[in-house]
Computed example of a mutant assay.
Amino acid sequence: MTEGEIHDLARTLLAKSSDALDPEEQTVLLGIRNHSPISRDAADISDERATRGERLADQVAAVGGSWGFIIAFGLVLFAWVVLNTDVLGHVGLVFDPYPFIFLNLMLSMLAAVQAPIIMMSQNRQAAKDRLAASLDFEVNLRAELEILRLHEKLDRGVTDRLDRLEARLSQLMTAMDRGAVRASS
């Protein structure tokens, strides 16, 4: 197909000029022109486009949002409290006595660092979702356009067949009329 054929496809299938097509529509029409599949995996595309920082944010969010992290963090907090009250309290070497101000500082710093990283990961997930929706739209549009093209092809085939039957019927009627005229003479 040539560029003119894409213009014709845009007019016939989408009722638009090729200049007014969205990027997704252009991709679909190019796929139709090239007879190539249109479906792609959004996760693969997103991973290809991801920067090192975005991949790191995803990994931090995956670890920070897991049961393993929650359990391990709970055990560390419990050990910190026990260590600074009972164990080191008997020897007089408590480095963070109750009300655990140093522990509060560490937790605040962890939250201050972890929250923006998790938000970066959520933003990246939202971008993946938008990409997936765009790819889904392309696939759905391609399927719809291909179905329309099949309908047109079937309609043309039926119309051609009916035209041939009508011509044949007309020939038979003419032959019958000639035979009736000969029989009456």
Rank of each mutant, 00 (worst) to 15 (best):
residue 1 M to N: 08
residue 3 E to D: 11
residue 6 I to S: 02
residue 9 L to N: 02
residue 9 L to Q: 02
residue 10 A to C: 10
residue 13 L to I: 09
residue 15 A to H: 12
residue 18 S to V: 10
residue 18 S to C: 07
residue 20 A to P: 01
residue 21 L to R: 02
residue 21 L to M: 08
residue 23 P to N: 09
residue 24 E to C: 02
residue 29 L to A: 04
residue 30 L to C: 04
residue 32 I to F: 07
residue 32 I to A: 04
residue 34 N to Q: 12
residue 37 P to I: 05
residue 38 I to Y: 01
residue 40 R to P: 01
residue 43 A to W: 08
residue 45 I to V: 08
residue 46 S to L: 03
residue 48 E to L: 13
residue 49 R to F: 07
residue 53 G to K: 11
residue 59 Q to W: 11
residue 60 V to H: 01
residue 60 V to Y: 03
residue 66 S to F: 11
residue 70 I to N: 06
residue 74 G to Q: 13
residue 75 L to H: 03
residue 76 V to S: 03
residue 78 F to A: 14
residue 78 F to R: 03
residue 79 A to T: 12
residue 79 A to S: 13
residue 80 W to M: 08
residue 85 T to L: 08
residue 86 D to G: 15
residue 86 D to M: 13
residue 88 L to Y: 06
residue 90 H to P: 00
residue 91 V to I: 14
residue 92 G to K: 07
residue 97 P to T: 08
residue 98 Y to N: 13
residue 103 L to K: 01
residue 105 L to Y: 04
residue 106 M to V: 12
residue 107 L to V: 13
residue 108 S to G: 14
residue 111 A to P: 00
residue 113 V to E: 01
residue 113 V to H: 04
residue 115 A to D: 00
residue 115 A to H: 04
residue 115 A to G: 05
residue 116 P to T: 12
residue 119 M to K: 09
residue 120 M to H: 09
residue 120 M to N: 06
residue 122 Q to P: 00
residue 122 Q to Y: 09
residue 123 N to A: 07
residue 124 R to T: 02
residue 124 R to C: 01
residue 126 A to S: 12
residue 127 A to C: 02
residue 127 A to S: 11
residue 129 D to T: 11
residue 129 D to E: 13
residue 136 D to A: 15
residue 139 V to R: 04
residue 140 N to C: 02
residue 141 L to M: 10
residue 141 L to A: 00
residue 143 A to Q: 14
residue 145 L to G: 02
residue 145 L to I: 03
residue 146 E to I: 04
residue 150 L to P: 00
residue 151 H to R: 13
residue 152 E to L: 11
residue 153 K to G: 01
residue 153 K to Y: 05
residue 155 D to L: 06
residue 157 G to A: 15
residue 161 R to L: 10
residue 163 D to W: 05
residue 166 E to D: 13
residue 168 R to G: 12
residue 168 R to D: 12
residue 177 D to T: 13
residue 178 R to C: 00
residue 178 R to Q: 12
residue 180 A to Y: 07
residue 182 R to L: 14
residue 184 S to D: 10
residue 184 S to Y: 05
